[in-house]
Amino acid sequence: MKLEGGRDYLTTAANTVNSLVKGKDPRVYLKPGNVIQFLSRSSGRTIQIVVSKTSNELICDAIGGTGSYYPNAHWLVVCTSNGRYCFHNNYNYLAINNGKIIIIPSTSNEKAPTEAEFRAQDVLGSAQAIYLESVHMPGYFVNFNDDGVPSEDIKLKTKEKFGQFEIQLIAYGPGIQPEKDDQTIEKSDELAPPPYWAAAANASNNPSHTESNSTSS
């Protein structure tokens, strides 16, 4: 417990110093009920939930679109104790377990799984970017390569761009005071894909489609 508390304290202290130096808090949109997107600095796209072509399970990548037309890439901010966070999307949590990025099914009304809890650490010297460190597995960070594929080794040094994300605001939560110049994304020029739950339903109703996806991969 002391170790966890110490890690939380060091994270908070470093974030405070960075915000004072840069004049802006990269975590300003991490408030309860806000809906956000994570823009990967390595792929230039957002973290989204997709259906695996090989297993038909829900997985994550970082090639999602930006804006309100991309529900697969929307994350509801759930604040927990000691300045920690969980991120929820349509009955699913973003999580890290056994050194891998995973999706854990659960409603936002239930207590979040321990694997889904993160610390948000500022990228020192940046006014926009953060790292997401697993509370369940300290020293492990959400990260994706340049193609938006989850890195094989989640444990990385925090100076790497693969673990750096900028937060895009989609909508404010109930009672949250809007930020000045919040640059909320209202529209996109891209054609939105079908939501992942619709894709999963189509795959389960069409076994031949699932088989062809597995073969092509």
Rank of each mutant, 00 (worst) to 15 (best):
V123F: 00
N56T: 13
K53C: 07
T80H: 08
Y91E: 15
K161S: 13
V77G: 02
V149S: 06
G148P: 04
S81K: 12
N90E: 11
I176H: 01
C60I: 04
L132Y: 06
Y140R: 01
V78C: 09
S126D: 04
V149A: 08
N89Y: 09
G163T: 06
Y69W: 06
G65K: 00
N109I: 11
T158I: 07
G163C: 11
T114V: 08
S106E: 15
I59Q: 13
N97A: 11
S81E: 15
G125V: 07
V78A: 05
N82I: 01
I102E: 12
G125D: 12
L124E: 13
G64I: 07
E179T: 06
W75N: 04
T54K: 15
Y85K: 02
N97H: 06
P105Y: 09
Q128A: 12
E179V: 10
E117A: 02
L156A: 12
I63L: 09
H74K: 04
S52V: 04
K100C: 04
N90L: 09
M137F: 02
T114R: 02
Y172Q: 06
L156I: 14
Y131P: 01
E152S: 14
S126P: 02
K100D: 07
K111M: 04
P138A: 01
T107M: 12
P138D: 03
Y69S: 15
V135P: 00
D153L: 14
F165H: 01
E110I: 04
S106K: 15
I101T: 15
V149G: 01
S81V: 10
A95H: 03
I63P: 00
T66M: 09
L94H: 03
K161P: 05
I103V: 15
K155H: 15
V142A: 03
N72M: 01
G163A: 10
F87A: 04
